[in-house]
Design a protein around this nucleic acid. Structure first.
Length: 693
DNA sequence: CTTAGGG
DNA sequence: CCCTAAG
């Protein structure tokens, strides 16, 4: 029974997210258009896994009955991560680090709760471990797994909790209690918090929101843990998101079944990805790129995990579509990257495989027993960007849940559009990031300035301290944003609107008025990768404090046992900033003369020959690529097709629009390619009609 | 690198 | 404009 429930939920969680996304272009689309939503390979995997799970449910259930099964853990060590979903779902994965551990983030509270419960229930609970000095992750507590490594992912959302089977299951027999506790206490709170998060994905200024959760906006980061065997899967998507995938080396297989495409195969990454979908692939590519980045150095293993897990696993794929660029993307709803989810492969929770297979088998997996030992074993490397580290013996792990941006001072005209506001904020943030962020460490409310001190000397290795460990992101340079004028915003009024969002009391913040925006920290945010993250993160001058326990506000959570190195990472940052911040090109509206030149060129050359158009009429306009011209034409056609009242932006002379329409119509019927020669004629005709020629 | 399209 | 996928 329990299992069932769990399973169902889990599924629910999984599935929803899983919806595959159709290819963007029509052409591709042919294949599947069905869904709008985008999916990531992971999701698909998850879905598949879910199916498998279901299928195997029966078998599993038997195991499950025991309770342990579900939690199954592979002796090898599994890490599991749960995702949070809420945002996570939506979030796209990030390639970069993709894995993040946002998990922790969700709330310190939750974590705490977990810890408590855990400790209570399990002797070897994380807590103990911590005390012992061994590293443990405690992120999630739900599922605890033992095996060698356990990682618990705490679901950020309740949803996750509820849904993800893993979690629940994970719990061992005892689990019941712990879960409850967790749920009652932590989860709900978290949920609340998250709920808000979700709401505020955007930077948009939301007074309400801000007032309540001034600081938060955060992004959740999931932590990922990597174990040798495990794989991380990022997932995202809104809905639900979380699922964990268990993966064993050999097991993988999960999928299979679906069409080739969907099947999750485990093999090489390539295949996998492929299996899912083209997109994922892309993500993959990106990831690769990212991998190259220095950031990765921090987490070498990740790479392995991510990409290389060939062993049997799938790789996690992350999708990031725009993640990198996120900055700009803010405009859309998701400001920064969305969360990424990662799964570690071996998920006990899911058990799909586990149930029947290895996971469940391991006797010990049962649970806690091995933990300690396991913990050490784990040694997974750092997870992605995340901050979590696993530590082997004397390491401390930290996981940062999210970074919040404290305050940004933005001035924009009242008439500015929301989009422009977003852009402005984004720019401001970007500026800050670029200037360099500095990561500060706060222990028990005090800032630790001496970078040379060891964690031990600083007392960061003690559990109690960890609870009050916080990190801050400080801008390297000036923070204030000049109120940028919006470039495009058509309307700029003298009035300025300032919103103040109060910042939460918790974190110290800048005074300026403000806007508080939180960004999702990309996975990047992790301390480790702080560098990377910086840009994404937000960086506001602000600091994020985290108390271990602190409620949601805390952005970062510290995990016990950290690797020293990891720490080192934290402070680092400055230079590391990612060069890649890609910025969107500045917008350069086409002038009437440009439009005219474009129209003329198209009339002669027809559509489909953008390169020629470029050469012919925009040779000197280096900022106008043929793609731009093509896009402009596209918009011109659209503009010409709608009523004048619906048109926005700089008005285009009607006669030009008429020509656009004529040319468009003409060329639509005459494959321009075919007529290389008489290009002009057609135009003429059309023009004649229009009267423009 | 170009095209064509979706976002 | 961006980002992809295909050629």
């Amino acid at each position: 029974m329990v299992l069932k429930k769990r399973i169902e939920y889990g599924f629910g969680g999984y599935r929803l997210p899983v919806i595959p996304r159709g290819p963007r272009s029509v052409r591709r689309r042919g294949a599947q258009k069905v869904e709008d939503s985008q999916i990531c390979a992971f999701e698909l995997l998850a879905a598949v896994a879910g199916k498998l799970l279901q299928e195997s449910e029966s078998s599993a259930s038997s195991n499950a009955a025991e309770g342990k099964v579900s939690s199954g853990i592979s002796s090898e060590g599994i890490k599991q991560e749960q995702l949070e979903e809420g945002e996570a779902l939506r979030s796209e994965c990030i390639d970069q680090g993709s894995f993040v551990e946002s998990a922790i983030a969700s709330g310190l509270t939750a974590q705490k709760c977990n810890l408590k419960s855990t400790s209570r229930e399990f002797p070897h609970s994380i807590y103990d471990k911590i005390l012992e000095g061994t590293s443990i992750n405690f992120r999630s507590d739900f599922s605890k797994k033992v095996g060698h490594d356990l990682k618990l992912g705490v679901p950020d959302n309740k949803k996750a909790v509820e849904k993800s089977p893993c979690k629940v299951e994970a719990v061992s027999p005892n689990y019941g209690e712990s879960c409850d506790d967790y749920i009652d206490g932590g989860i709900e709170r978290q949920l609340d918090a998250e709920g808000n998060h979700n709401r505020n994905v955007d930077l948009t200024v939301d007074n309400t929101y801000s007032s309540k959760y001034p600081m938060e906006i955060c992004v959740d980061i999931h932590q990922l843990i990597n174990s040798d065997t495990s794989v991380q899967l990022p997932s995202y998507r809104d809905s639900v998101a979380n699922a964990s995938f268990p993966r064993h080396r050999n097991n993988v297989k999960v999928g299979s079944r679906d069409d080739g495409k969907n099947s999750i195969g485990c093999n090489r990454p390539g295949s996998k990805i492929r299996a899912f979908r083209p997109q994922p692939r892309i993500g993959h590519q990106r990831m690769r790129k990212l991998l190259t980045s220095k950031y990765w150095k921090l987490a070498p293993k990740l790479k392995d995990c991510d990409f290389s897990n060939n062993d049997g696993c799938m790789k996690p794929i992350s999708r990031c579509r725009k993640a990198l660029y996120t900055s700009e993307r803010i405009q859309h709803e998701v400001p920064f990257k969305k969360r990424k989810l990662c799964y570690h492969s071996s998920t006990p929770a899911h058990d799909l495989e586990g149930s029947s297979e290895s996971i469940s088998n391991s006797p010990e997996k049962g649970v806690y027993g091995d933990k300690i030992g396991s913990a050490r074993v784990v040694s997974s490397s750092v997870v992605g960007h995340q901050a979590s580290f696993q530590s082997r013996d004397s390491h401390v792990k930290f996981s940062i849940k999210s970074f919040k941006v404290p305050e940004l001072y933005v001035e924009v005209p009242v008439t500015a559009t929301v989009g422009s506001l977003k852009r402005t904020v984004m720019e401001a943030v970007t500026a800050i990031l670029e200037s360099g962020l500095h990561v500060g460490v706060i222990v028990q409310g005090k800032k630790v300035k001496d970078d040379n001190k060891t964690l031990q000397q600083t007392g960061i290795c003690h559990t109690d301290v960890l609870d009050t460990l916080g990190f801050t992101l400080e801008p390297g340079s000036a923070i204030a944003l000049p109120s940028p004028s919006l470039k495009d915003p058509p309307i700029l009024l003298p009035c300025e609107t300032r919103q103040q969002l109060s910042s939460s009391a918790a974190s110290p913040i800048l005074d300026s008025g403000v806007f508080n925006a939180s960004f999702e920290a990309s996975p990047v945010t992790n301390m480790n990768h702080s560098v990377e993250s910086k840009h994404e993160l937000v960086s506001s001058p602000t600091e994020v404090l985290t108390d271990g326990t602190a409620v949601d506000s805390r952005a970062l959570v510290a995990l016990p046992a950290v690797h020293v190195e990891a720490l080192a990472v934290v402070p680092v940052n400055q230079k590391t900033r990612r060069p890649e911040l890609v910025q969107r090109r500045t917008r350069r509206p086409f002038s009437v003369s440009e439009v005219e030149a474009l129209v003329e060129a198209v009339e002669k050359l027809g559509t489909g020959r953008w390169r020629d158009v470029k050469l012919r009429s925009f040779e000197d306009a280096d900022h106008r690529t043929y793609v731009d011209l093509k896009d402009k034409w596209k918009t011109l056609v659209h503009t010409a097709s709608i009523s004048p009242q619906q048109r926005r932006g700089a008005p285009v002379p009607q006669d030009l629009l008429d020509r656009v329409l004529s040319a468009h119509t003409y060329w639509s019927h005459h494959q321009s390619k075919l007529h290389g020669k008489h290009q002009s004629e057609p135009l003429t005709i059309s023009e004649a009609q229009v009267g423009t020629a």
